[in-house]
Design a protein around this nucleic acid. Structure first.
Lengths: 211, 211
DNA sequence: TAGAAACTTGACCAGCAGGTCAAGAAAGTG
DNA sequence: CACTTTCTTGACCTGCTGGTCAAGTTTCTA
């Protein structure tokens, strides 16, 4: 874990500094990528001297790992959960709503993840191979169950999950491009609602869950 | 343009070398990002000495621009075109098919573009502001026309276009992750068909274009 | 076939990035 | 209030990177 276990309640100096560093590092890693983000640039953004950064994290690689871990935890917490009792309609609604909300609320987490994956996921292979693959399979089985039960159209469950991933994350990862196309400066709260409604509508109907 | 206009039919040495360099550079820029891709690594991948790379392209920035331009041209050629005579059903089918095919055939082009956009699109702002925005608006108007004509459901045309972009590109950009989830080594030709069919089915039905 | 143009390449250089270090300042503790 | 631990930081070092150069080789062309 990131937080030093040796700390009790005392000395939040460490925690405070680490948080500042990780926030700054995340931005730099997104904007400049791993090699382009220098320890100095992270230091400048965090408002600390370079040597101080290296005091808290032995080296740049460690900073990167910490940022990535933080990102994955956020993904894990934000994804929500769907259970068999939900039924396909509620499950899809919950799933889309959770992912859209996360994309608009923490776009940086999604961007970090995206850059990693596009570049071949050198640090995420293990996460994908174990955790994510299992997650997708478990949820796919749920959908398959509902399909077998005649509760929704016979669509490929894995493709459906991928569709929900892609269409929701896109608003985080491609934020810049979408805003440019729309000729807007930044997202507004209503956008979350609008996108959620649009995607839910299309996908539910696409699955035969809406007349 | 990339190709030196001064060349007639003679001397394809230049063309051959430039192509090798651009291919190598594209891979390096994807795998290592701009700063991480060194002229030496591009040279090694291209099988040429470093000084030779700098002979054909004055500096690293120029290589990057050339790769990006090539990428955008590919996007432009591969996107296909839809016209009012198509009607909504054929238009969506053509659009999805073209983008899926491109994603599976030239994933590198999509990845280059994605990295650029995620990092704030420093080199693509102009392209998006003029060309892409116009493209989306023109196509959105087509869909709006069909909606007003009662030929399809009343969905937001811009969101629809974004949905098609995101769900198709995802197979190129997140190739690594999808293959890992599926526990496969690489895509196979049938995948193009399968994904095209799946997305077309869901989205057509989502738009009320399929019983 | 001779001279010009295009190409090739090893050697070199200046600047910057990651990382170390040691000396000192602050904070915690008994 | 001693003294230990944690924190802070400027100075420094080494290796690598983008880019230059000039001497040579190959290809083109008249």
């Amino acid at each position: 874990m990131i937080v030093n276990k040796k700390q009790g309640k005392q000395s939040n100096i460490r925690a405070k500094s680490q948080e500042k560093i990780l926030d700054a590092a995340q931005q730099e890693f997104i904007l400049q990528s791993y090699k382009g983000a220098t320890v100095q640039s992270i230091a400048d953004r965090a408002g600390l001297p370079k040597a101080n950064i290296l005091y808290y994290f032995k080296n740049k690689e460690n900073i990167y790992h910490a940022v990535l871990e933080q990102t994955l935890n956020m993904w894990d917490e934000g994804i929500g959960d769907i259970v068999i009792e939900d039924g396909p309609k509620v499950a899809i609604e919950k799933f889309i709503a959770a992912k859209v909300k996360m994309s608009f609320t923490y776009p940086s987490a999604s961007k970090m993840h995206a850059i990693e994956v596009i570049q071949g996921a050198p640090h995420l292979k293990e996460f994908a191979r174990t955790y994510l693959r299992q997650w997708v399979r478990t949820k796919a089985k749920l959908f398959q169950h509902w399909i077998d039960n005649g509760e929704m159209n016979d669509v490929d469950p894995v493709s459906l999950i991928i569709l929900i991933f892609s269409s929701t994350q896109h608003y985080a990862d491609f934020e810049t491009q979408i805003l440019t196309i729309l000729n807007r400066a930044e997202y507004e709260p209503e956008d979350i609602e609008h996108v959620t409604k649009f995607l839910t509508d299309i996908i539910l109907r696409g699955c035969g869950l809406k007349k």
